[in-house]
Amino acid sequence: MEIFKHEIRQGRMALFVWTAAISFMIGICIMIYPEISSQMGEVSNMFAGMGSFSQAFGMDKINFGEFTGFFSVECGNVLGLGGAFFAAIIGISALAKEEKEHTAEFLLAHPVSRAEIISGKLFAIAAQIVILNVAVIAVTVLSVIAIGEDVPVKTFAMLFFAYFMMQFETAAVTFGISAFLSHNSFGAGIAIAAVFYFLNIVANLTEQAEILKYITPFGYTEGADIIMDNAINGRYLAAGIIFTVAGTVISFWKYQRKDIL
């Protein structure tokens, strides 16, 4: 519990900044919707005619003129990318930062098992992701109400659940990698999140690359697919859960055997 509280205290500023930035961006996106919705018919036709570009971002499958379609692409990218970067940064730095700054020696000289340290840090990461998403959902709902649109409860529930799972998967995978590092690597975390994002774009472009949807957590957060199918793709999500569990198990396995130098 002390490790959990300590991690939350250590990460509170970063959490505040990322939550504020993502919420602000999503709020702005929603607020500008009424102004541009009148031009959406033309925009949708334009996107439909942009071939691979629209395909890459799933914009060929949805009606950009409808609020849910607009939200899933515009706001989805903000929360998708922003959330993934945040999750990757807190995941990759959770264990490695202690070794880089030699605070692991301080921590591990106390009667706290390594399993407790990993659990405390994982729960803190999960809590930070929950806090970020709750704040973003609150800002989203209030913004939607403010512009006079109906809140698409089921669609939002599916989208936000998918984003949460994606962020947690990204954090778990980078956390697992963090157990192997002895220096902090924000760069590696951001690169992993970016690779996940681009793998999904490649998978959107050609059916032959569908396998990539199983690898990247962005596979099951594809707003266009969720809206069209009115469901999250269970197979992609299952693969994501396997990666999440694998990242977590690997972090326990490695960190408990690791020499802290």
């Binding site: 002390e2 300590h6 030699h102 605070t103 020696e105 301080f106 921590l107 000289a109 106390h110 009667p111």
Partner: peptide
């Protein structure tokens, strides 16, 4: 245990580090 390098969490105050150590125990 007193490590030779004496590395601590740089953004914390001394009293918070001492309290953290006691709480961990």
């Amino acid at each position: 245990y007193l490590p030779s390098e004496a590395s601590l969490y740089s953004n914390m105050r001394v009293k918070d580090v001492i309290r953290l150590s006691a709480n961990l125990r």
